[in-house]
Amino acid sequence: MYFCKVNPIQQIFSINNDSEFDETALAIFKHQAEHCAVYASYIRHLNIIPAHISSVLDIPYLPISFFKTHEVLSNPKIPEIIFSSSGTTGMVQSRHMVTDVSIYEDSFNKAFELFYGKIEDTCLLALLPSYLERDGSSLIYMVDALLKQSKHPDSGYFLHNHDELYQKLKKLQDNKQRTILIGVTYALLDFIERYRLDFPELIVMETGGMKGKRKEMVREELHDLLQAGFGVSAIHSEYGMTELLSQAYSFGEGIFYCPAWMKIVLRDTNDPLSLIRNHQTGGINIIDLANVNSCSFIATQDLGKIYPDGSFEVLGRFDNADIRGCNLLVQ
Rank of each mutant, 00 (worst) to 15 (best):
Y131G: 09
E133C: 09
S138G: 01
Y141F: 15
D144V: 05
D144S: 08
A145C: 06
L147S: 05
K148Y: 06
S150V: 03
S150L: 02
H152S: 05
S155D: 07
N161Q: 14
H162F: 15
D163K: 11
E164K: 12
E164Q: 12
Q167D: 08
K176R: 15
I182P: 00
G183I: 00
V184D: 01
T185G: 05
F191H: 08
I192C: 05
I192W: 02
E193Q: 14
E193K: 15
R194V: 09
R194W: 05
Y195R: 10
L197G: 06
P200W: 07
L202F: 07
I203C: 08
V204I: 15
V204H: 02
M205G: 02
M205C: 12
M205N: 06
G208R: 05
M210K: 11
M210Q: 11
M210L: 11
G212T: 13
R219M: 12
E220R: 14
E221R: 12
H223C: 15
D224M: 12
D224C: 14
L225E: 13
L226G: 02
Q227I: 15
F230W: 09
I235L: 14
S237M: 09
Y239V: 06
M241G: 15
M241S: 11
A248D: 00
Y249S: 02
Y249H: 15
S250W: 09
F251V: 02
G254W: 08
G254H: 07
Y257F: 10
Y257G: 01
C258P: 00
W261F: 11
W261I: 06
K263M: 13
K263P: 00
K263A: 06
I264T: 10
L266N: 03
D268A: 11
